[in-house]
Design a protein around this nucleic acid. Structure first.
Lengths: 227, 227
DNA sequence: TCCGTTCGTTAGCCTAGACTAACGATTCGA
DNA sequence: TCGAATCGTTAGTCTAGGCTAACGAACGGA
């Protein structure tokens, strides 16, 4: 009884989305979630208990949480909204790649299904957002792709940038953009030193970066024949 | 001191917008505001006190409130957001005229300036929303127009529909749309009876309506020479 | 094995913004 | 002019979602 479910508020949706993004392998500890959401640990414990009582998450040993199937569906919808909105802001409104994250972050909680599907239609049902992330479909399904970190590319090998992760860090996105490290770009690893200095060739230009500066750039090795 | 102003939340913005729309002539009584916002009277008293302490509204005799100049500016911005969003939803996303109100009502509180101005740019700086309401400019200025209610049009006279008010009533908007009573339409008053039955000619068709069914349709009499 | 650090939870508090119940003031009709 | 409505305010509650302080459990290094 008492089955009128609580509203899907901004805060709840953010917890679910965070669990989806952080919890692909193992249950997410309270502390990790707290850091990610910039919230205190007691707040997390508290909200997880609520989400658990709504059967959206399952809280396991030591407080670590993972999404239930229902929670996963709900979280995928939030992600879909976020990515469609980012795509819209960049492709249609021509806002900058590196600046749309915050706006999408806000709007994702307030766009109705009607408007979202209209946006999707207007853009011709895009399959990826401007950072190369796959956009979940209406059922929450996401295309799985086998990508590897650019930093793991052996010297001499080439690949295609497919996805850049960490959209909340504007400065880093701008840097990547300036070096040409955008989805679709062809990149070749020239040299990788022991101490984490990478020399790349991107669109004919030499780019030198540290391991940290490359973290989040994902490439696809198989450059032909895939699809 | 203590000048860090409170966030412009959804609720506050709605109070301001309501005051702008209801308070063109006289201060707005608590009860009117409560009815309009579907909120209890004590809630109104309470919120007005807060808005007053922020110098956004002035509360006068018997609790009646009007906007301060600063409040007026803030409210006009909300209205600008609302109307630009409605225009976008109809003109770009091709949603129905009669259905976009709710979505705009929600989004108006969450669209950043950056996105709003991008929308404005994308649409080529529209001056009116789909219902014919003038869109306030970035400074909050609104074009003043001399419109009269369609029902006041003398028999035999023609005019142009310029604005349809009451966008929150979907059914009524649909009815107007079906009869061709949309901004820009030419209309002629054929007959108006004592007991409030009006016979019109709209786009060659006869339309019969009661006073109430016409309430909110505003026309411009001067059909040439104005601009 | 012990001790300090890390982690999660409990308890209690805060703010925004709603609510109801009760009360005082005004106004209007008879 | 008196009584009944109407209106606004006061007082007290509630919910969501944060917070800090304090505490106990678990872990890891010596």
């Amino acid at each position: 009884m008492d089955h009128n479910r609580p509203a899907a508020t901004r805060s709840r949706e953010n917890y679910l989305k965070a669990l989806l993004q952080l919890g692909s392998e193992a249950p997410v500890p309270v502390s990790v979630l707290a850091r990610h959401l910039r919230v205190s640990a007691p707040s997390v414990t508290n909200m997880l208990a609520r989400l658990a009582s709504e059967r959206l998450v399952v809280v396991g040993a030591r407080g670590a949480a993972r999404l239930s199937p229902a929670g996963e569906r709900a979280a995928a919808q939030v992600l879909r909204r976020h990515r469609l909105l980012e795509t819209f802001l960049v492709r249609v409104l021509e806002l900058d790649w590196s600046e749309v994250h915050e706006d999408a972050e806000e709007l994702e909680h307030h766009v109705s299904d009607r408007v979202l599907e209209a946006l999707d239609r207007f853009m011709g049902h895009p399959s990826e957002d401007p950072h190369g992330h796959p956009i979940p479909d209406r059922q929450g399904r996401v295309v799985r792709r086998a990508l590897s970190p650019l930093a793991a590319l052996p010297a001499g090998r080439a690949a295609a940038v497919r996805e850049v992760r960490g959209g909340e860090d504007r400065a880093r996105l701008s840097r990547w953009k300036r070096s040409g490290l955008v989805p679709g770009a062809r990149v070749r690893m020239v040299q990788a030193t022991e101490d984490g200095v990478y020399t790349l060739e991107v669109g004919g230009r030499r780019v030198v970066a540290g391991r940290e500066g490359l973290d989040g750039v994902m490439v696809e090795r198989r450059t032909r024949g895939a699809r």
